[in-house]
């Protein structure tokens, strides 16, 4: 009898894996609806409860604000530059509304991001002809990312200052993060502090740990999610 309970649990687990796609659609629809009417926020703690999840690779991240935030642009450029938050805000802003897709599976639909096109900062710095890629570093002291120059010049790649029509908060990578709309969200480095133009792509933090460098949503990392752009 005990053996039957044991084997039954195993069987239910296997059945759960088989039935998961259907079950998941059901729970997502139900919890998504419940979360809209849940003042306690407890639904956010349930699996597939919707919304963003916080991932950081370091133990703590310093807080930066308009007073001490700096973004440097250097490397293979003619005019290296350092921007303050006010300096970035003074540049032309672009607003985009796209889905956010994480490589671990969660997706946040229709999320507005707003900021300066990366191509604008690159043009202002004067990229040299020998350059082929852009490397991004972060003030958490550990995270890094990179894009080819061609990817970095896309119109849907932003140095984002606002998300969901609010200034970027610290837990979402504020005051400034990268936003690479067509790629999995690990490419959108939080707490962006450095843009360095390089000759070739250097794999970033998660990419050294097995994730794809060219992280197009739906066409990389063995996943087939619906593209975000």
């Amino acid at each position: 009898m005990g053996r039957r309970v044991f084997l039954g649990t195993l069987g239910l687990g296997a059945l759960g894996v088989l039935a998961a796609p259907a079950l998941q659609r059901g729970t997502e629809a139900f919890l998504g609806g419940a979360a809209d009417r849940d003042p306690t926020g407890l639904t956010g703690l349930l699996p597939n409860g919707g919304g963003f999840r916080y991932y950081s690779v370091t133990s703590s991240v310093p807080h930066k604000d308009a007073g001490n935030y700096r973004l440097t642009v250097d490397g293979l450029v003619d005019r290296p530059a350092t921007y303050t938050l006010a300096g970035l805000r003074a540049l032309p802003q672009t607003r985009m509304v796209r889905d956010v897709q994480c490589v671990t599976g969660w997706r946040v639909p229709g999320t507005p991001f707003e900021g300066v096109r990366l191509s604008e900062l690159l043009d202002a710095a004067g990229v040299r002809s020998s350059a082929g890629a852009v490397r991004f570093t972060c003030f958490d002291g550990a995270y890094s990312e990179s894009l080819t120059l061609e990817q970095a010049r896309r119109a849907d790649v932003l140095v984002a200052l606002r998300m969901q029509d609010e200034d970027l908060g610290h837990s979402h990578g504020g005051p400034v993060r990268l936003y690479v709309a067509p790629m999995y969200f690990y490419k959108s480095a939080k707490w962006l502090s450095g843009i360095t133009v390089t000759d070739e792509v250097r794999p970033g933090y998660w990419e050294e740990r097995g994730y794809d460098v060219d992280a197009w949503v739906g066409r990389s990392n063995g996943r087939d999610d619906e593209p975000t752009t």
Binding site: G13, G16, L18, A20, P47, G105, G222
Partner: peptide, 22 residues
């Protein structure tokens, strides 16, 4: 070991793992 099983299985495994963990 993400290469062992196709993506649909992995997503399903994540779903079961999450709810059973709770």
């Amino acid at each position: 070991f993400t290469h062992l099983t196709p993506l649909v299985w992995r997503t399903a495994a994540t779903f079961v793992h999450d709810w059973l963990a709770l």
